[in-house]
Design a protein around this nucleic acid. Sequence first.
DNA 1: TTGTAAGCGTTATCAC
DNA 2: GTGATAACGCTTACAA
Lengths: 345, 345
Amino acid sequence: MRVTLRDVARLSSVATKTVSRVVNNQGEISKATRQRVQAAIEQLGYRPNILARSLVSQRSDTLAVVASGLEYYGPSHTLVGIEQQSYDLGYSLLLSLLPRPDDTNVSPVLDAFVARRVEGVIWAVPEIGDNRAWIQSDLLDRLPPIVFLSMEPRPGLSVVAVDNQTGAVQATQHLLDQGRRKIGVITGPLAWWEARERYVGWQDTLLRAGMRVSPSLVVNGDWSAASGEQGMRKLLEQQPDIDAVFACNDQMALGALGIAHQSGRCIPRDLAIVGFDNIPESAYFWPPLTTVYQQLVDVGRIAVQVLHKLVEARRHSEDGVELAATVLKPELVIRASSLQTPRQV
Amino acid sequence: MRVTLRDVARLSSVATKTVSRVVNNQGEISKATRQRVQAAIEQLGYRPNILARSLVSQRSDTLAVVASGLEYYGPSHTLVGIEQQSYDLGYSLLLSLLPRPDDTNVSPVLDAFVARRVEGVIWAVPEIGDNRAWIQSDLLDRLPPIVFLSMEPRPGLSVVAVDNQTGAVQATQHLLDQGRRKIGVITGPLAWWEARERYVGWQDTLLRAGMRVSPSLVVNGDWSAASGEQGMRKLLEQQPDIDAVFACNDQMALGALGIAHQSGRCIPRDLAIVGFDNIPESAYFWPPLTTVYQQLVDVGRIAVQVLHKLVEARRHSEDGVELAATVLKPELVIRASSLQTPRQV
DNA sequence: TTGTAAGCGTTATCAC
DNA sequence: GTGATAACGCTTACAA
């Protein structure tokens, strides 16, 4: 049943090493031998066993990715980039999902990776609360190279992230440029690093413009459209003369749009709304949503490129590879939900 | 640097087999020895090498999944179910993405799986055109057990799928029940099996109700919101007295909603709209969208459960395991976009 | 250009 | 209870 290199060698009357050479296209082999071997491979239906090869060559050609919230727009797009680049570089990809992104018990999944001798790890779980605490532990020393996504860059770690703060600045500045003066914000859960960055971007932009940042302009959401609805209701209550809202993702913006309509406001005339993420649906909201586009597929691709360099460096036992952060700038996508000049009071 | 079983054995003055027993919790071992071994493991930072284990035990405890379109709602949710169930059953999961779902050149990715000796494969690529042609080839014989998702059930294959036709029937019947009489459809790309099923469900329901199925009630979309817009425009042109539309996914329904509004129609009074998928945003469309919910996470979980049984059967070389199809029934989620009785003409 | 021997890190077999 | 020894399927020296 199981066909091995030896079987092929026997059938084609050569040494196993010769078959190995044919399979891996290495060394000089006479045409006749090669053809004979290939015929035997064909005939027996031989498939090389990469596990055995890994054992002796000390390389698994496998990367692993730990992700969370794959149901959502961001993580799934990043994963696409990770997979594509891994494939392009010849790696297999092992996938592990954390059921809860704020999970702090990460050693089981990491142990499994080490046991399988993966050559590198992409940590694609958003930074929430202290779910990065394990980085301080000695766990990290026993691990292969690892690249972190969506987290605060810090020295000694390879991080690839989008500059959320700049994105929020772009969104808020755009609203200012459109003549808006009472700009509220619906934040994400502030335990999330990304949510904090977006909030700070909003805040800084207003302060730099010499405006007051009243607490009545701030409500907290949880990324869901339901929380966007709730947040919008609260904002309209706390600050009836509000003329713009920066919702920290598109789902919350969607919820906010609905409530704004229900309150009888015309968008963007009475109230401008800007989101974050540029989910495909946002171009078809009513009105189409101005939002911040992040190149999440690129984040994934770049992460694997960085990881690949770390893996290569370790293979050649180069020391002192500088671990740096790669930060991508997002882009504002301007649509109807923010475009009209506000009505003069 | 590399610590092996032998190193541990040496340090704790036992045989390698004993260490192996301790690591795998098998056989009877005296408390003293176990502790001594565990201390050595701890001290050396020993991590078992699963690759080596797989080589001798002839099992990799690894499944593989081939998916496509992970950026979209359906595939990403199914993948979540697949990963969760794989983890629960103790398998590692290898992920491969097909850049184009209609790709017909699948042997590279399958070869890679065979080379890695995965014990089973989940084929989570939608059936499009003849992208199932390879199943007829001898490729299948050399493969480990494989479970197919989202495809027409056929004898000799394990398939797990949602009953798209029934979903479409539910949607269309609901519109009939609401008193609608001119019910159009915006289909998905008809090369897709799922799109055809939904189309047939719409058609059959109308025919069974004794209604005519006019070509002017049918337009073809490509799943995108843009195609939903375009389709809606065409429908309104071809059949101005249309009073309901079944859009074959929520994105197209979103596009249709926008155009319907722009045409001055009030939804649901003048025009009822129903979608398919129940993406989270659909509950916040304007108006909230009636749609068909598929338990896609369950599809993934069940697929792995089925696969697990096949793997076990092969291990014990049980023959004649019946390969059956598992079909899940979707559920209609009724919201405002279809609820109101139409205006009496 | 091709072959031989050793070994990668584990588990299975069968002794003790 | 524990230990020697032979696999598992492949590649890397080194030899011919």
